[in-house]
Computed example of a mutant assay.
Amino acid sequence: MKFFNSANYREIISSEILRNSQVKSYKKKMSEAGGFHAAYLSQVLTNSANITADQASLLCEFWDYDERMSEFFITLVSLEKATTASLRKRLEMRIASLRAIASPAEIAVKLESSLAFERAQLLFSSSDYYAVLAALSIPHVQSEIELSNFLRIHIENLRIILTQLHEMQLTKKKADYWEVASENNATVAHNKSLTHDLVSSLHAKFCQAYINTYHSMCDAAVIPVTAEQYNALKAEMRALMEKYHGALERNGEFVAGINVSLFRF
């Protein structure tokens, strides 16, 4: 299921349950996170009950959705409970708008739900895959030689990466140059084990860059915060990432690696 193509919020809940089917007592954990009982969840999934917008927001935090995904899910929930034609129209327009935003291929790699898990593991195993996709959005950096020189990836290794990305339908080749497959309309996969692999790869790349160049930035802090401050900080960090992610498309000069971490002790 492609997230932004979901017809209603129940499809998203069902998809999350299916995706986490190997997690012990997942329905119970999800229900507790959403502030309702597992028995009530069964009623929701059979169209016998609805969750509230507050509960929807709690689920978005549990699933670690970004702002756009959260708004889409919460709006779908609100649509189910709308009682006037005026409100339904407004909510349907907002849903259509969010779907339109999500449709074009974006620089950041999006993991299509139909990809085999083995290929997903490969994609997240090295930041080089992401770097190639990001570089392909920059004009005049689309041939194999240009990409190899630009990213300082050996030409043979680059060809392997391009071939693998092509097999995942994330890139396509035209004559002697490559480009991101614009028809790819996948959603970001939230899988902590896969994300951990990518973070590890980015950190290794950062250490190399930090030692060898003066362009890199490193900052860290351990601070006392309230729960409200923590959630606000997380939202601000995500908003900043999304802001620049969309704004820099096809206007970049080089590829930057960003690794933002926030956690509770």
Rank of each mutant, 00 (worst) to 15 (best):
S6P: 05
S6F: 01
A7I: 11
Y9Q: 07
Y9V: 05
I12V: 14
I13S: 04
I13V: 15
I13E: 09
S14D: 12
I17N: 06
I17P: 06
V23Q: 14
K24T: 09
K27N: 12
K27Q: 15
K28Q: 10
K28P: 00
E32Y: 00
G35F: 01
F36M: 04
F36A: 03
A39V: 04
S42P: 02
L45A: 07
S48C: 03
S48Y: 04
A49T: 01
T52H: 01
Q55F: 02
A56T: 04
S57A: 06
L59R: 09
L59V: 09
E61Y: 02
D66T: 12
D66W: 04
R68S: 14
R68L: 12
S70H: 05
E71S: 06
E71P: 03
E71R: 14
E71H: 07
I74Q: 09
I74D: 10
V77C: 09
A82C: 06
T83S: 14
T83D: 12
S86C: 03
S86T: 15
S86F: 11
L87P: 01
S97G: 07
S97F: 07
S97N: 09
L98D: 09
L98I: 10
L98K: 04
L98M: 08
R99N: 03
R99H: 01
I101L: 15
I101E: 15
A102L: 05
E106L: 10
I107S: 07
V109D: 02
S114E: 14
S114A: 08
L115E: 02
L115A: 03
L115M: 10
E118T: 13
R119C: 01
R119H: 08
A120F: 00
A120H: 03
S127H: 13
D128S: 13
D128L: 04
Y129C: 11
Y129R: 08
Y130A: 13
L133F: 00
L133A: 07
L136S: 06
S137P: 07
S137Y: 07
I138T: 02
P139C: 00
Q142E: 06
S143A: 00
S148Y: 06
R152L: 08
H154P: 03
I155Q: 12
R159V: 01
R159K: 15
L162G: 04
T163G: 15
M168H: 06
K173D: 02
Y177R: 01
Y177L: 02
A181R: 15
A181C: 09
A181F: 11
S182T: 12
N184R: 13
N185S: 08
V188D: 12
A189Y: 00
A189D: 10
L194I: 12
L198H: 12
S201E: 01
S201Q: 03
S201P: 03
A204V: 12
A204D: 15
K205A: 15
I211N: 11
T213P: 09
Y214C: 05
Y214N: 13
H215A: 12
D219K: 14
D219W: 02
A220D: 02
P224N: 10
P224F: 06
Q229P: 02
Q229W: 00
A232M: 05
A232R: 10
L233E: 09
A235R: 14
M237I: 13
M237Q: 08
R238P: 00
L240V: 08
M241D: 07
K243V: 01
A247E: 11
R250E: 08
N251K: 15
G252C: 01
A256E: 07
G257M: 05
I258N: 05
N259Q: 11
V260R: 05
L262M: 11
F265W: 06
